[in-house]
Nucleic acid binder design. Sequence first.
DNA 1: TTGTATGCGTTATCAA
DNA 2: TTGATAACGCATACAA
Lengths: 359, 359
Amino acid sequence: MLITKKHDITIKEISKLSGASTSTVSRVLNESGYVSTEKRQAIEKVIRETNYRPSMIARSLHSKQTKTLAVVLPDVSNPYFIGLIEEIEHVSEGYGYTLILINTMSTGADKMNAVDDPEVKALHTIQEKHVDGAVIIGGEIDHVNVDSQYLKTLNELNKQIPVVIIAQKVENCDCIFVQRHINTGMRLIVQHILSLGYRKIGFLGGKPGVRVTEQRLAEFEKLVKMYTDYDDKSVLLNDYYLKDGYQGIEKLLNQTDLNAVVAINDRVALGAVRRLHEMGMNVPKDIVIGSADQFPDSDYYIPSITTINQHNNSLGKIAVEQLIRSFNGQPFLTAESEFPDLVIRESCGEKKYSNVLKK
Amino acid sequence: MLITKKHDITIKEISKLSGASTSTVSRVLNESGYVSTEKRQAIEKVIRETNYRPSMIARSLHSKQTKTLAVVLPDVSNPYFIGLIEEIEHVSEGYGYTLILINTMSTGADKMNAVDDPEVKALHTIQEKHVDGAVIIGGEIDHVNVDSQYLKTLNELNKQIPVVIIAQKVENCDCIFVQRHINTGMRLIVQHILSLGYRKIGFLGGKPGVRVTEQRLAEFEKLVKMYTDYDDKSVLLNDYYLKDGYQGIEKLLNQTDLNAVVAINDRVALGAVRRLHEMGMNVPKDIVIGSADQFPDSDYYIPSITTINQHNNSLGKIAVEQLIRSFNGQPFLTAESEFPDLVIRESCGEKKYSNVLKK
DNA sequence: TTGTATGCGTTATCAA
DNA sequence: TTGATAACGCATACAA
């Protein structure tokens, strides 16, 4: 059974059916120029009856804009990205833009050469689809050493359409950057734990070679060195997922003795809490776990996670607005997200636990 | 500072620069027809140097296909949908299709009239953008009484492009449906709890008026009535989120005495577990909580949630493949997801707790 | 107030 | 093997 879909109705047919020229139909479509009430009503009637909708693609060919934005990210299943997508979608919709979503991790292609690199491929797709602007979140651009081929492609794309990147600024990249406060969040959580009296503090999660992670680690080390005898065995980097907290915490505790751990985010924290539970240790009684990056739902965990609200979603709004400004030829503002907040919950315990300095 | 983006390079300019006609350039672009090695190399050189990429929108105007699929869903922050998006993205990418994402809840518009209805609007957008096919997940179509205006729009869209809906089949809708096993999952979890010996079992979460929820509830009631003295006070419907489990469990226990609860999904289950914890009750010792729909990560909760793996993601793959089949004029297969599996974890306890019939 | 003609970037038909 | 040219659906400049 071969399915034959009905031929799309065009402005020409509306023109014929209504006895007006295509120009006149176009005029009522765009509410531009003068059209007699008589003709207008006839045309509107036909449009209604035929369920006609002008083709955006034909329109785009003429107008040079597609009213479409692209969002590129490595992993839609990551809560950090999901919040951003939601916000970007919401704001874009408000401005009349539709979203194209590209999940670069989903390709699973080996990164053998530039052509097969999913991120480079994503940029090519963007160019072909002629979106009006693009938001890029994380991925290659987050690396300490950004692949030069990727960077080149990115800069070329940016010559054609405005590209906003949600990440820490990269020197030789011409795109617009929207970033989070770099060290504030980490400082807040580490100082909280130090203030509670803990002195054997570890760092868990995050990928080596990723700038945010390296920067957070540096800030962590700076602070911890200030107040404790720092031991670099108290650091374990792996990745950002639950399993990394789960597996990592055990390794970390085998390496060194700790009574507090800062996890790179709530997922890693949850993974760690779970493993500790299985090992017969209670959080926060036996060991406290804080997180440097709040994810949704972690207030429902047992224990709930003491963490940092980085106001990630505000980045999404800012990103889209920078794009819109760019369309209008307005200068972009130097953009940073809202100031991070410490969110005190259960996983680091309460004041009462901290009357004595915790060795 | 007004940003002037560089004029897009077109096939014409490649033609000029390479000294060949646009036809010839088009031929090397599409590897169609014969082109002398000499010309081909000249053209390829220019393409490389100029970084030229053909405009998909101009191509689409001619070819009548955009190589784009639309995905419409109510709420991207819902883990059930995220898993599907991920799968749909992955499979689509494999077939060379890009995704447009429409999150109907994000508009927040009041559903006062059909024109402002975000879901109807989404269908209009799809039509305008001339995507090749659409996947619709949940939303209005899930309601017991589907809005007639919406249904009409949906059927009209389906005349123009293939539309796959991931939901239980609706009688007067002509689209292709891809569905989950209706009652199997609920049966598995209820029978598990009954088998453990519990006899005072409640039902928590899900929205009244939504078909999946009503069907699951019906199945729940059927089974529970078979083995226990059923009391309709043991049912509380509200919604699908954490807060619904959190708030709902308390109300439910105020209504009636229970020693087991089936939650509509893992999020609701987690919300309930958390509230019970705060109320000083232990899960599973004081009360057991099972879930009818597995979400990611619930194996890390404390306690981990005993639940049903509905293999939701397989629906995403099936949906895209139905679309592709449709493009090729192949008949669609009656599609159901994989058979659900009971996932025994901690929240319903273990065998040892069930030696005696639990009143 | 309305209609004709042209162009947008590409592909395909048809000659050459 | 190659190059004009028409066509895709729409918007606009220009005429009428």
